[in-house]
């Protein structure tokens, strides 16, 4: 069965995008990436530590022949900073893809949708493939798509919260209206959270803390991989309608004693 995910000009067999932050070591991260089956990982862009050059490069631990890099603009609170960071990421990674974040508030890390839309327009004009992290708001997603986003990435719940999909109906509405892939980004804590997102019919899931923060990140990475696959298969298989009352699974005829 071919059921691949295409974003812009790239096709992925895996529908799971994972992060590279918060791992206890680079070795654990590499093994988690392998176990997740991911073909794209997010990376952040930060100043090089000038006084301590002993640090290993993150890129030494990512098999970039198999795994695409998706630079993010995490930590940016203005469109200008996000655009500046995206340009640096393009130069460092030699790829024009960006996971665009413009944060509006440091407590919730919810996006500033107005600035996000502005940054999306400008980066699309600069030739970027823009994947914006956004609210689970169908109108915001529609505007981002109209601005040229290659995918929309509504949150399931606040970043790192592990609360799971808080508003499945909004995701359903977003997916129904979207002409670009919908990736649920943020909030996934358990494999069932990932499966719920995929069962709604979204195109993929992006997570970092849900894997990196688990007691055994490598095992959780595999669980998330299976959950994304199971959720996707369940969606494609077509679920039964919900009903308030029972429908017997066994024949009603020939029951003993009746």
């Amino acid at each position: 069965m071919t059921d691949s995910l295409t974003i812009a000009d790239r096709t992925f067999a895996s529908r799971l995008i994972v992060g590279t932050g918060k791992y206890s070591s680079h070795a654990v991260m590499t093994r988690a990436h392998q176990a997740s089956g991911t073909e794209m990982v997010t990376v952040a862009i930060r100043r090089v530590n000038i006084s301590d050059r002993a640090q290993e490069s993150l890129l030494d631990h990512i098999d970039t022949d198999q795994i695409a890099l998706l630079p993010n603009t995490a930590g940016c609170y203005t469109a200008a900073d996000a655009i500046r960071t995206a340009h640096l990421g393009r130069e460092a990674g030699l790829s024009n893809w960006v996971k665009l974040e413009v944060i509006g508030d440091d407590k919730t890390l919810f996006p500033d949708n107005e600035a996000l839309l502005d940054a999306t327009r400008r980066l699309v004009a600069d030739g970027f493939v823009v994947l914006p992290y956004t609210n689970d708001d169908p109108i915001a997603c529609r505007k981002l798509e109209e601005a040229g986003a290659a995918a929309v990435m509504p949150l399931g719940a606040p970043i790192g919260s592990g609360l799971g999909v808080q508003n499945p109906n909004n995701l359903r509405i977003i997916k129904a209206g979207a002409g670009v892939p919908v990736i649920v980004d943020a909030g996934v804590g358990t494999p069932s959270d990932a499966a719920i997102a995929m069962e709604i019919g979204v195109d993929g899931v992006l997570m970092n803390t849900g894997i990196a923060g688990a007691d055994d990140p490598v095992a959780m990475a595999r669980a998330m991989r299976l959950a994304v696959e199971a959720g996707r298969l369940g969606y494609l298989a077509g679920r039964i309608p919900r009903a308030s009352y029972a429908t017997a699974s066994s024949p009603l005829e020939g029951v003993l004693g009746r």
Binding site: G19, K22, A44, I45, R46, R47, S57, L69, A74, L206
Partner: peptide, 10 residues
């Protein structure tokens, strides 16, 4: 002058 590189992130 700003010199940046990739670090772990989500």
């Amino acid at each position: 002058v700003e010199i940046v590189n990739f670090v772990g992130g989500g």
